[in-house]
Design a binder for these strands. Structure first.
Lengths: 198, 198
DNA sequence: TTATAATGTGAATGTATATTCACATCGGAG
DNA sequence: CTCCGATGTGAATATACATTCACATTATAA
């Protein structure tokens, strides 16, 4: 593919992207050094010029997704200030990520491949926690502003919203892409909004 | 552990249970023939007297979980006829399964290990679909009876309920068991019930 | 241009693990 | 009791990978 030698920073990016592509198309089963190297256009052993180990690649991919998720939140916060609008945009943005990074469900839902290092799960946990806190902040803001019912636990509301989105991912994943995520997300959001709105 | 020779049916059960135990405690990473054999108290090669391959064991475990899930639905349907009560009991029962079979999240969320055969995912999909249909039937029944708002798509409602429960599983899993699932389930159900009730 | 550090290559190594096989042993049907 | 099929065992085999290594090649700075 990419002939010639390249700077290690570029290669690291290419490798992480290749990893995502493989996971998306072949699942975790196909996620191997050889496959990655193939996709990047170099030989397996060359991978080790840029990553110390396969684990490091996984970490890199996780970081990539985490940043993408957090990025979504900050992005929608800049688009609008209205809490309900923020949540709505966040939902559709999160769903949209499925198409941009189809590997997400497989990664999120495969604790299996991530139990290598003991702190891998901690890291994942921390990422999710941070993400949830941000959602919760939006909800709290909405409750303070009076547009979201205040008689409900903001943490529960944030978890349910996340659960709803992840359910879409699960359905999309197990159905092999046949599940209409957008339609579901739209209806689910309507229900959720109606339930939390004052 | 279990000395002496045993009937293959008993062994198959023991092996499936051992597999669940291992997955729960050590994750998919520890899920190997040797570990299973150890737990059952026989030698690795003896496993093959009862299962043709590791894949067949995975299938067996999946069946076990599927039956357990479906069993939950039929069980609560016998306990009560009221749709809302049925759903409530189903939620708490599903949450309760986390303690009975702690391996569930790891299995549900690790498509990664299950992509061996191409029809593995189809099977999983079919199980989830069947389960969802049953939830949906309860909701439809409630809508017909007038206790659940009829202006909402029953499929979306069933998916959201499932998503809510699965979010509890995810949090429980990534937090290493520190997340208080019961408290969350209680509040989430209250919210959901309030939103769907007429 | 040339020296050197970074990157790429092909072969070799090591390891983990599923699976097979020849043989041993048990348990129940006759 | 005594066979015989089913179950269990230990060693051997196969394979799939990650990782290492010695060497080749390229880019770049001087």
């Amino acid at each position: 593919m990419a002939a010639g030698k390249m700077d290690t920073e570029v290669r690291r990016e290419q490798i992480a992207q290749a990893a995502l592509g493989i996971i998306a198309t072949q699942g975790m089963k196909g996620f191997g050094i050889a496959a990655i190297a193939d996709r990047v256009g170099i030989v397996p052993s060359a991978i080790y010029r840029h990553f110390k180990s396969k684990d490091e690649i996984i970490d890199s991919v996780l970081d990539l997704i985490r940043d993408s998720m957090i990025g979504n939140v900050t992005a929608i916060c800049e688009e609008t200030a209205d809490p309900l609008e923020r949540l709505e945009k966040l939902v559709s943005r999160q769903i949209g990520m499925l198409h941009a990074i189809p590997a997400i469900p497989q990664i999120i839902f495969s604790g299996g491949s991530f139990e290598g290092m003991s702190d891998r799960k901690d890291k994942l946990h921390e990422s999710i926690r941070r993400y949830l806190v941000k959602i919760r902040e939006i909800i709290l803001q909405g409750q303070k502003a009076g547009v979201i019912r205040a008689d409900m636990d903001s943490e529960v509301l944030s978890l349910m919203l996340m659960g709803t989105v992840q359910q879409a991912m699960i359905m999309w994943f197990v159905s092999g892409g046949n599940f209409d995520v957008n339609k579901y997300a739209k209806k689910a959001w309507a229900f959720y909004k109606n339930a939390i709105a004052n």
